[in-house]
Structure formats: structure tokens, C-alpha cells
């Protein structure tokens, strides 16, 4: 309990610190509305994928296929969207169909991953590595290796529009992140995911249907990737299989930075969201300050190592306190 809260506190302090440095060094540009909007536009794409990986990690798994799922759902949605002039349906309906197609595709990808992990017993890291190749392969075959362009202008609202000055995709992100938080804290599936991730054997002995929990987890993770796909293709008004491949490792990194235990059982939505914010502030700030994207990469790597080393020392401290408490209790009884 304490560890969770203190991890989020660390991230909050880090967020304030990084933001503070940026505001001080860029007093006019950084806090400007334009920069805020820019950050709000960039963050949801990888933020959703990080949440997807957090869910998989809570069950002790990982989802290496998130970017390929975005590619596949993006391509399928793109195929529907790009034909809006030829199929002759109302534009709104076409967009609706495209979104539905993207989410359905993601859903099926999720079932596929979940089945590999739950029923075939393949460790998640290999299962999703394989399906990563497969999904991307299907996407490439569908487009014959090319990209798809030319979407209805109304569709661009998801990746370029604003609602009351707030970027649409940021609002989508906030809603989705809240739902994920609700899932983990208030639903049976969320509770079971956490318990399964803590110890799958005890979970089976507690009457939990482990297979269903796992399949549902990968479906949820895939759906988050599907939503990311819609935002992504809308943002660039095109779709190319493999677009955003950098996001894969980034999403894993953010999930871990956010305090998710890759071994399963622990992770909070708030922590991951805070980690996303820290990275976005750092990223935008460094861009404005004129650092290359490479330096950003370096800074992220440094930050990850810093946080895990910090976590190591903190967990050691907590363990000492816990074990002495346990020892005291045992001798009293």
C-alpha cells in the first residue's frame, strides 16, 4: 500500500520538478496555450499503448504486439475510410463503420493473443512477439506494403480537432484512462487481474477462471491499441503499416516507470498517467530547447534507470521494515 502511494508521490514530485525547470528556462513558450495543445496532441498516441502494456503487465504478462495491432486496425479502418467517395455512404456512417472495423479487428487480435497465452500456455513475451509479426504481416499484405491516404476531412477531427480548445484526442485519452482506473479499482475483472498477476496458482485455487481473466486482459489491451490507431491515422491523415514502431519500447518503459511490476500484481493507472506526463513535459521541453530527438531518447533511458534504481532502494527499505514487523509479531504469538 505504502509503496504504491510513495511511487506515485515520487512521480508527482518529478513531474513538478521537470515542469518547473521547463517553465523557468522557457517562461514564455513552455506554459503557452499552443505548447499545451501540442503536448495534449502527442501524448495520447503512446499513452494509450502504455496503459495497454500496464494491463498486460499487471497479469504478469507483456504485450509486444500493441504497435502491430494499431497498424492492423489502422489499415482496416484506412481501407474503409479511403473509399468513402466510392462506396457512396454518408460520410458520418463511413467513419462510424471505420471505427467499428478498427475496434473489431483489435478485439480479434486480443482474443488471439489471449488464447495463445491462456490456452496454449505460451509465455506472453513470446506469444505477443509472434503475433506482433503476424498482425504486422497481415497489415502489410493488405496494403501490399504501401500506405493509404485520403480520408474524409471530418475524420481528421479525432487527431487534429479541438473541443473548447482542448485537443480531441486528449479528451479521449482522459476518458479512456479514467475507465481503465475504474476497471482496476472497481470491477471484478480488474480485481481478478491483480490477484491473478500476484499468484496465478492461488488465483486458480480461489475459484477464479484464470483463462477468462487472461483473455479479457489481452482484449482490453488490444482495444486500447485500437483506439490509439484511430487517433494516430486521423492525426497524420494516412496509414502506413509499422508506423509508430518506436512506441513499442516506449510503452513498456512508461508502464515500468509508472510503478507497474513486470512480474505482475502491482500497477496503478495514476502512476502510469503521471509517468506519461513526465515524459511528455520532458520531451516537449527538450524539443523547444533545441535538443535532438536522440538526446530525448537518451534522457528517457536515463530516467528509467534512475527510477528503477530508486525503486530498488525504496523496496529494500520497506522490506526491512516489513520483515522486522513480521518477526516481532511472530515472537509475540
Amino acid at each position: 500500500m505504502n509503496t504504491k502511494r510513495s511511487n506515485n508521490l515520487t512521480l508527482l514530485v518529478l513531474f513538478v520538478l521537470v515542469s518547473g525547470v521547463m517553465v523557468v528556462s522557457l517562461p514564455t513558450i513552455f506554459p503557452s496555450l499552443r505548447n499545451m495543445q501540442n503536448m495534449g496532441r502527442q501524448l495520447p498516441e503512446y499513452g494509450l499503448l502504455a496503459l495497454a502494456n500496464m494491463l498486460a503487465m499487471i497479469t504478469g504478462g507483456i504485450d509486444l504486439s500493441v504497435v502491430s495491432i494499431t497498424s492492423l486496425s489502422g489499415v482496416l479502418a484506412g481501407l474503409v475510410l479511403s473509399s468513402y467517395q466510392t462506396i457512396g455512404l454518408p460520410t458520418d456512417l463511413t467513419i462510424g463503420i471505420a471505427i467499428a472495423v478498427a475496434l473489431c479487428a483489435a478485439f480479434l487480435c486480443g482474443i488471439f493473443n489471449g488464447a495463445l497465452v491462456a490456452f496454449a500456455g505460451v509465455p506472453a513475451i513470446i506469444a505477443t512477439l509472434g503475433s506482433n509479426g503476424l498482425f504486422l504481416g497481415v497489415a502489410v499484405v493488405l496494403t501490399k506494403g504501401a500506405g493509404i491516404i485520403g480520408f474524409p476531412p471530418a475524420f481528421l477531427f479525432f487527431g487534429n480537432g479541438n473541443v473548447l480548445g482542448i485537443p480531441t484526442q486528449f479528451l479521449i485519452f482522459v476518458v479512456v484512462a479514467s475507465l481503465v482506473g475504474l476497471l482496476l479499482n472497481k470491477t471484478t475483472q480488474g480485481f481478478r487481474m491483480v490477484m491473478y498477476g500476484t499468484n496465478p496458482l492461488v488465483s486458480r485455487f480461489s475459484g477464479i477462471n484464470n483463462e477468462m481473466v487472461v483473455v479479457k486482459t489481452y482484449i482490453l489491451s488490444a482495444l486500447l491499441s485500437g483506439i490509439a490507431a484511430i487517433i494516430m491515422i486521423s492525426g497524420v491523415n494516412s496509414v502506413r503499416p509499422g508506423y509508430g514502431s518506436d512506441y513499442l519500447l516506449l510503452s513498456v518503459l512508461i508502464a515500468v516507470m509508472g510503478g507497474t511490476d513486470p512480474a505482475g500484481g502491482f500497477g496503478t493507472t495514476l502512476g502510469v498517467v503521471l509517468a506519461i506526463f513526465v515524459l511528455q513535459v520532458l520531451q516537449s521541453g527538450l524539443v523547444i530547447l533545441g535538443f535532438s530527438p536522440f538526446f530525448r531518447k537518451s534522457a528517457f533511458g536515463f530516467l528509467l534507470l534512475l527510477i528503477v534504481v530508486f525503486q530498488f532502494y525504496r523496496s529494500r527499505y520497506f522490506q526491512l521494515r516489513l520483515s522486522s514487523a513480521a518477526a516481532r509479531e511472530k515472537l509475540q504469538v
Binding site: T188, F191, V194, M195, L201, V202, S203
Partner: peptide, 21 residues
């Protein structure tokens, strides 16, 4: 320790896991 109890979790979590519904 390996089958009966979620050692790392709260006592309360352990109690309600069977009756979530």
C-alpha cells in the same frame, strides 16, 4: 503459501476474492 494465500496482498483482498459478485 503457494496455493492458498495471496501472501503479497491485503488480508481484505484475500477474504473477498471468492465472493466479488
Amino acid at each position: 503459501l503457494n496455493q492458498g494465500l495471496f501472501v503479497a496482498r491485503a488480508i481484505g483482498d484475500n477474504i473477498v476474492v471468492t465472493i466479488l459478485k
